[in-house]
Design a protein around this nucleic acid. Structure first.
Length: 572
RNA sequence: CGGGGCGUAGCGCAGCCUGGUUAGCGCGCCUGCCUUGGGAGCAGGAGGUCGCAGGUUCGAAUCCUGCCGCCCCGACCA
């Protein structure tokens, strides 16, 4: 490919609209252009990088026995009515009517459509298991698109759906996908972790997220320093609390005046206690019902855990006015003793002895509060957010918190959709049974962004070889010099003939620009054809990632470079 | 949707507070010369509804009102 004939609009300056590095570099290097918020055009190099990821994903999905299909982007509302998601799915489902006034939506995911395929086409256990996947543009009308390709409204996704005859078989399908995902992200040259995750709105019994470790990640991961426990912060378990051996006599519950003491630390200080001895009572709106949540004073509530414990679709911290209007409770002085609204407690709270808590009366708290004697929560569970000070729930070692970018998510769905949509089959025993499903997603376009987040320097991107839009760039440093140009043209041809992806910089630019652009584009190998050709018949090969350079005789350059790249790809 | 910021040439910005002929600068782009191992130099040139609409004024990029768009922080998620 001749650089002079390709649309690669690089820029010297950082685009002002981009905040994170992948977005900045994708724009600067001419990989993408914004149409409007959350919608991007992929220019030639961006498209090439996207295809690289896509092909790796396709190869590994096929290897794992999945079959590629392609489903429509426009979907009829009736299917969504059947699954119940027409009502449940929020405004990120883009809905519209066709010319016949029929309700439609743009597919944000394809459980409904694929389940419809399965129920129509699969009737016997002999046809199972089946794993169908597609690589397709998804549309989600995100509340806030951001960070370029990281969270667009339209994005390229690989989504796969497995159908099995039994739970065991479904778990086997899940395991296969987990392995395929590990292979995919390893091949992409990414540093990643598979972590336990919340299954979110897609629903289902268990799931893992694949997270690329990068500072700009939108998620927080909890990783054990010693064993392989890793979880999303939303899901991370704290090590089970141990009941402290306390010789302390159980005190009576006493009301004390704590004027103006609304915050836990103030209350604790005033009463001469540590924050650990105070019960913090947070009021949430759970599907518009007020629910109080008790955690130890030094802890924070993890909303997703709360949502799951309460089995509601939405929880939100209630503001003071709402609390007052709905319950006449004074925020800052609320506590579990005699609390008129439903309340739940973090498991740790139940081990507290002689705690302090709000008295449900402005300006007053109670001391000597003891669980079970003075209050009984409607439910008890793990509700608090894990911190870096916690210990691993499996092995007790120290935990580390780190940021990550979610690039893949696998779920065991169970029968959530197959039951609602009656996807059944006849089993060997003649019984009609419901298919067990799993679903498996990869944000293909997000992988490109994540790879850049993880691999860049001050000069630009540094693509891992398998993801690079082209593998090698040949720089012709002096177009007017016949010897140099002849050598560069020859090298370009030889490398392409050898099956490499080559970009030949034949632009009438000065060397400086060519070096800068080659770095910016992040092409793994750069061959400079310049004065060396005339001096001693050599060209320079430089690796983008290490900066390492070697001089190669022109005659052997193509062969050596080809061998090096092929070897590296095979090793990876 | 709540909070913050921004819209002036393809890109990055100044001018606006304190209204006043022809709206500037750098990069990029076009022509020519020159130059060729880390975004050179010289000369000439093209390119603007100052986001949109309305208002105030003799006069608006500048002041006022409304709208639109974009970016960032929160809830959502591949």
């Amino acid at each position: 490919m001749r650089y002079s004939q390709l649309l690669i609009p690089t820029a010297k300056e950082m685009p002002a609209e981009a905040e994170v590095i992948s977005h900045q570099l994708l724009l600067r290097a001419g990989f993408i252009r914004k149409l409007t918020s959350g919608l991007y055009t992929y220019l030639p190099l961006g498209t090439a990088a996207l295809r690289k990821v896509e092909n790796i994903v396709r190869e590994e999905m096929n290897r794992a026995g999945a079959q590629e299909i392609l489903m429509p982007m426009v979907q009829p509302a009736d299917l969504w009515e059947e699954s119940g998601r027409w009502q449940k799915y929020g405004p990120e489902l883009l809905r519209f009517k066709d010319r016949h006034q029929r309700d439609c939506c743009l597919g944000p995911t394809h459980e409904e459509v694929v389940t419809d395929v399965a129920r129509r086409e699969i009737h016997s256990y002999r046809q199972l298991p089946v794993n169908l996947y597609q690589i397709q543009t998804k549309f989600r009308d995100e509340i806030r698109p951001r960070f370029g390709l990281m969270r667009g409204r339209e994005f390229l996704m690989k989504d796969a759906y497995s159908f099995d005859a039994s739970d065991e078989a479904a778990e086997e399908s899940y395991r296969k996908m987990r392995e395929a995902y590990i292979r995919i992200f390893t091949r992409c040259g990414l540093e990643f972790r598979a972590v336990e995750a919340d299954s979110g709105s897609i629903g289902g019994s268990f799931s893992h997220e694949f997270m690329v470790l990068a500072k700009t990640g939108e998620d927080t991961l909890v990783i054990c320093q010693s064993c392989d426990y890793a979880a999303n912060l939303e899901k991370a378990k704290a090590a089970m609390p141990v009941k402290p051996e306390s010789s302390e006599a159980v005190q009576d519950c006493v009301k004390v005046a704590t004027p103006g003491m609304k915050k836990v630390d103030k209350v604790a200080e005033f009463l001469g206690l540590s924050t650990q001895q105070v019960i913090k009572t947070m009021i949430y709106l759970a599907d518009s019902e007020l629910v109080a949540v008790l955690v130890r004073g030094d802890r924070e509530v993890q909303p997703v855990k709360l949502k799951n414990l309460l089995n509601v679709t939405d929880v939100e911290l209630a503001d003071d006015d709402t609390v007052w209007q709905k319950s006449k409770l004074p925020v800052g002085y609320i506590g579990p003793v005699g609390l008129p609204i439903r309340f739940v407690a973090d498991q740790e709270v139940m081990l507290m002895v002689n705690a302090a808590a709000g008295a449900n009366e402005k300006g007053h708290h109670l001391t000597g509060v003891n669980p079970n004697r003075d209050f009984t929560p409607a439910m008890v569970g793990d509700l608090r957010q894990v911190t870096a000070d916690d210990c691993c729930p499996l092995c007790g070692a120290a935990l580390r918190l780190t940021e990550g970018i979610e690039v893949g998510h696998i779920f065991k769905l169970g029968t959530k959709y197959s039951e609602a949509m009656k996807a059944t089959f006849q089993d060997a025993d003649g019984q009609e049974k419901t298919m067990i499903m799993g679903c498996y997603g990869i944000g293909v376009s997000r992988v490109v962004a994540a790879a850049i987040e993880q691999n860049h320097d001050q000069n630009g991107m540094i693509f891992p070889l398998p993801l690079a839009p082209v593998q090698v760039i040949v720089l012709n440093l002096d177009l007017k010099n016949e010897a140099i140009t002849a050598a560069a043209e020859q090298l370009h041809q030889e490398l392409e003939a050898a099956g490499l992806e080559v970009l030949y910089d034949d632009r009438d630019e000065r060397p400086g620009s060519k070096f800068k652009d080659a770095d910016l584009l992040g092409i793994p190998y750069r061959v400079t054809v310049g004065k060396g050709v005339e001096k001693d018949g050599t060209v320079e090969l430089r690796a983008r990632c290490s900066g390492e350079t070697v001089m190669l005789p022109l005659a052997e350059a193509a062969r050596e470079i080809t061998a090096k790249i092929k070897a590296e790809l095979t090793a990876g």
